[in-house]
Amino acid sequence: MRCTVIGRDEVLHVARLARLALSEAEIEPMARELSAVLDHIARIGELDLTDVPPTSHVVEVSGALRLDEPCVSLPREVVLAQAPAVSGEGFLVPSPQA
């Protein structure tokens, strides 16, 4: 069985993609656990899957489209009620340009 080794840099790269901060103490265990699971998963590499189509959906139906008919939108006070930070009429976030 091949040994998948996920290194520190790879863990940090993936964490960055996932917008997940990892403390220094979390990096090494994460690398180790991911490697162990990926090692197990790597077994599917042994199967011959030439010409096997991928399955995204187990049910194949068509026509699941919606008519272009308006529904009632939510009142703004309801929309903003659960937000951690609000300013006036919208959701407040640190500026992406900052």
Binding site: I44, V52, T55, S56
Partner: peptide, 14 residues
């Protein structure tokens, strides 16, 4: 290697 392959395994299992 991962997602694409897993979806093909899914086909075989079905």
């Amino acid at each position: 290697a991962y997602y694409g392959r897993a979806q093909r395994v899914r086909t075989k299992i079905a």
